[in-house]
Design a protein around this nucleic acid. Structure first.
Lengths: 235, 235
DNA sequence: CGGGCGAAGATTGTATAAAGTTTCGCCTGT
DNA sequence: ACAGGCGAAACTTTATACAATCTTCGCCCG
């Protein structure tokens, strides 16, 4: 009895309006269209999405919980600006979690998933050739998320979603050179290892991939973020 | 310039009313006063804390994001009832993260922290002797949280807070025997290893501690939760 | 006597309005 | 000319009112 005729629980963010707002803002941040420190006014966003401030506020609170938005009391919401210390923590956490995620993904491997991964690699290559930096950044993050979804481990997936979003901000703030193409080949190597169900190689590749991304960052003094932001805004 | 005269960022939940609600409900769940499946009506909670529904709603949404409350559309908020699969995921994540946290805690060890740990162990023993099951459950979780705070790793701390809260629900739902005293000695052993700055032993003890907790659980069929809930309610 | 339909009650979702806080410009006084 | 303070505007915060939805209980029909 009590048939589960409710809406599918695995579609937590599909049609409701607050999720549309949340995903819209998230996408803008992940694609580096919204810069750290940008103010996110409630009226402003509400008008864009045709929603009242109540819904906007809900979305912003969720984003704050995910760590990509800071809400300052009586001042409003701003795109987060992770400190170098935050950056180190985020990447340490990723180095801990993602190798394990790859393990699980290999356990759950299936033709459908392999198709999906191959398709994703194609999209990444295409965006690369097109020189579409925004799409490249977004797809680069989505690759890691895809592997996490594949693993079927919902808790790791939730954690990694947060870490990826923060990583996007960190890379924007602290990368040394403009290296948009960093790591496309790495992803291909990881997929190859997954295809072969070679856990050891997959773990190692994921780990070194993350290390290389972090090595590209300049995480020294806490004033660097202001410098970097000035750079971006001046451009 | 721009002196950081804002309210301390490390006191994110001290005086504002929504945090009081959130922490009140969280404490009730952690102490097993609120059972899984219990409905959390907005008016009901609002009246208890003397707050309007707006604030209650905010608090419930935060708790939902932490995974200890489920919000069903047009039906309301309920104390979460983790499935056996959820339980396995939670403990796997803890086995992955907590040994690393202990490592960091040992790096950050100081007399003040050792005092704090010793004091906590004393509280746990006292609650044990007193036979205060609620306090025991709460303190048992707080021990792990304390170690995470000690590590100074804010991301791991955030993740672990979620995992601890869910663990409390899981233990309530799935433990075999009524074993309230499970693991007090384990905690003492971990603290001893921290005192000696013996990372290897500390990691091992933490890992076996978590394994033993999970071994006490009965994570078989998905119908067990209903049985278990009926048990508790009948008492 | 059991099952299904329907209306009333209750509860949540959303919007709007009132209240409090911060910020920024402007004006005055030195 | 410049420092300091006053005041208005804009924004966030909180509360309340309205609309939509679900649940429940009673009643009617089979």
């Amino acid at each position: 009895m009590a048939a589960k005729t409710r809406q599918k629980p695995d579609a937590p963010d599909a049609s409701d309006r607050v999720s549309r707002i949340r995903e819209g803002v998230t996408a803008a941040i992940l694609e580096h269209r919204l810069l750290p420190g940008t103010k996110l006014g409630e009226d402003e966003i509400g008008e864009i999405y045709g929603a009242s401030r109540t819904l906007v506020r809900t979305a912003l609170q969720q984003l704050a919980h995910e760590g990509i938005v800071n809400i300052e009391k009586n001042r409003g919401a701003f795109v987060a600006r992770p400190s170098p210390a935050d950056a180190r923590e985020v990447f340490e956490a990723r180095r801990l979690i993602e190798p394990t995620i790859v393990d699980h993904a290999i356990d759950a491997v299936s033709p459908a998933w392999l198709d999906r991964l191959g398709q994703h690699l194609a999209e990444e290559r295409e965006a690369e050739l097109r020189g579409d930096a925004r799409a490249s950044v977004r797809l680069s993050g989505e690759f890691h998320r895809l592997v996490a979804e594949m693993s079927g481990h919902s808790i790791y997936l939730g954690f990694l979603k947060e870490l990826i979003a923060r990583s996007s901000l960190i890379i924007l703030l602290y990368r040394r050179h403009d290296t948009p193409a960093c790591g496309t080949d790495h992803h291909a190597g990881i997929v190859t290892a997954i295809r072969k169900r070679d856990k050891q190689t997959a773990r190692t590749q994921m780990l070194s991939h993350l290390r290389e991304i972090e090595a590209e960052l300049f995480l020294k003094d806490p004033a660097a973020d202001e410098l970097r932001l000035a750079d971006v805004l001046g451009a």
